[in-house]
Amino acid sequence: MVEHRPILNIVTHLVLILGILIVALPIWITFVAATHDEARMLQAPLPLLPGPYFIENFKKTLFGSGLSGTETAPVWRMLMNSLFMAIMIAVGKIAISLLSAFAIVYFKFPFRMGFFWLIFITLMLPVEVRILPTYEVVADLGMLNSYWGLSIPLIASATATFMFRQVFLTIPDEMLESARIDGAKPMRFFFDILLPLSRTNIAALFVILFIYGWNQYLWPLLITTETDMTTIVMSIKQMLEAAEQSPQWNIIMMTALLAMIPPVFVVIGMQKMFVKGLTETDK
């Protein structure tokens, strides 16, 4: 702080606390809704303070059959689906991006720049602008309702490739020279030198991509029709629809809470990696 201004200091903390309260309000209301029973959640005004039913709702939601009157998969199953999808997307993106960045930085081969631009173009083609034809391709390949269909079409990544390319470019040439003198073949060099040196970047990227994968919505909505393959994020929408007939807000909000806990936990628990990943990939 440049100068001493006691009043401004108080204002600073007040504004920040107010900001936090506004940002946290929707989450607080969700949490409170998840701690009351069904009957209480049907009387206006809704409570603003937590009730005693958290554990009961938790058990009912996680191990019960979801909302009564709807045909959704059990919530634990949906959490597993989301977890598989998020991990497959994150690991897949990192793996194929590491390999292509390695090829582009360390090899001289025909069409090298052509491949580079082809990867670049994926930046300009988000799922939203090609939904129908991409759906058709996945359907033709028989990948609907599978983890492969959920993850593989999303794992091409220009940003990850560019990031690893930057990382590799900062690694001194002497590394490769000495590795060669020691007789290391390309893949040996990749696994023994490049991978360990990019460890923190891989971790930072994993945090960002895990959240990206977990929060996918439009794509799973299109390609999963079987309730067994539903992801937790998708199920909220189905529950909201069902809520128009039989509102069980305690269960719906508990599901919402369960759906946001893993990514929020990752952001808070790995905050340093998260900030690094976010600012280095810029998206």
Binding site: L99, S100, V105, Y106, F107, R112, L118, I121, A156, L176
Partner: peptide, 23 residues
């Protein structure tokens, strides 16, 4: 491109293949 680099004919194609195929 790295000043010091490999000159393999088939390996780089194998390396970019997964990304390019998906793209």
């Amino acid at each position: 491109l790295k000043r010091v680099h490999f000159n393999k004919t088939w390996l780089p194609f194998m390396l970019v293949a997964p990304q390019i195929a998906i793209t």
